[in-house]
Each structure stands twice: as C-alpha cells, then as structure tokens.
Amino acid sequence: MTDTKQPDSKQDEAVDPNAPITGMDYFMKLEYHELICPVVREFADALMEKRLIGHKCPKCSLIYSPPRGYCPICTVQTTKADEIEMQTRGIVTNYTVVTPVQYYGQEETEPFAKVSLQLDGGGNLSLQDLPGVPVEQVRSGMRVEIVWAPDGERHVDDVTNRSWGSAEGAIRGWKPTGEPDADPSEYSDKVF
C-alpha cells in the first residue's frame, strides 16, 4: 500500500494548530494484474488485423462483441466455432453526452459523447466514440463507419476483460459516412 499525495492536497493551507482534528486524508493505491481471457485475447488479436469479431449464439443468433464465451440469455457457452467477423459500418441507435465530473484520475474536461451502434449485418456495440464530431451534431440514426488507428500506431495494450472503453488503441472511433440518416424503424427496438 502506498500513500500518494492528491493533486489538490490542502496541506499548503495555513493550519490552526489548536483546531480539533475532524478528519484525515488517507490515499491508497491498489494494483491489480488480471490475465486477459482467451476470447478477449482473440478479439484483441483480430483488432490488430483490423478485424472486428464477435460470437454469434448458436441458439438465438444474438451477436456479442467483444465475445463473452457464452450467451447469457440462452445460457450456452460459445467458442471459436461461433466466431464471426462483423461489418464495420452501422447506425447510431442512441447516445449520451457526458459533462465530465472531476474525480481522481479523470482526464476529460469537456463534454463528450458516447454512442450505441447497430452494425450492418448484425451486432450491437455500446460506449463508442465519434472523435471530431461536435457533441451537438451527435444524433440517433446517424450512419457511421469505423476509424482504425493507423498501422504502426495500432495497439491493444489497454484491452481488458471489462467490456468496452479499452479498445481505443486499435479503434479511434467512428466517423459519419455522410449518407442520409436511418429511419427510426430500422433501429428503434434495439436502443440499449
């Protein structure tokens, strides 16, 4: 366990030596090293080859990307045999614009958007980025395509077992294709 000084530590403020002690700051650091599970490793390997993969449930055909190794709805396990390559174009089904709250480790300072996508040919992704698109232009129905990190810069060092938000080293985000927006009937039952 390590004590670390928080950036906004108040220790520089004048302290009244006679004031009663009502609290103390105690900062700790815990380190976790988790092995990447096989299905996520395969997902990461595919990202390096500019391929987006998922597992298609053999029973209900729902697609999970990144693969989980099972379909939680049918409670069946999925394997490499259920792997499919997904299309890298799709529709924004919903979005959220987050005004970042400051907390220890928060690097965002300006409002940012996260979107949910329905990919052409099937498969849904959540918590995706639209870099370069002003947040006020983000909308449901927008057609987008993937933006891969360029060769040489692409990496999967931050990929974890813990869902999305860690593939930015390989996928910069998604960009509008400029096509007309999709009709809500094409995606409205898939917003999640």
């Binding site: 987050v98 709250v101 907390y103 928060q106 690097e107 940012f112 996260k114 813990r162």
Partner: peptide
C-alpha cells in the same frame, strides 16, 4: 463508478 479510470459516464 468509473472503476478508477478516466472518462467515467456517471
């Protein structure tokens, strides 16, 4: 909520 990472959604 952010699991200690940046970019937490809240």
């Amino acid at each position: 909520l952010a699991g200690g990472r940046s970019g937490g959604m809240g």
